[in-house]
Amino acid sequence: MHLPAALDDYTGGQRRQDVSAVTLGDGMRALNRRMPGIAFRILDETDSLREHIRIWVDGQEQADLSVKVSPEAEVHVMLALSGG
């Protein structure tokens, strides 16, 4: 998973994080176990993406957390060109 600089307080600047997951949602939960609180900055309480955040899985934009991801998947969490 590739995370934006805005989340450096959680990642300590390690913007690439390797997690094991079957789905995108699993990946977010794994990330949150490692860095408590990070998921709620990206997703709301209904597990929907925050308004100005976008996620790509292997180059395909995804908003559905149930989408399956391969063991080698590259997930990019990006800040949209809005929201500042």
């Binding site: 805005a6 900055r41 990206i42 997703l43 709301d44 925050r50 100005h52 949209a80 929201g83 500042g84």
Partner: peptide
Amino acid sequence: RTGHLGPT
């Protein structure tokens, strides 16, 4: 919160 990240 930030313009992008959720509230805390």
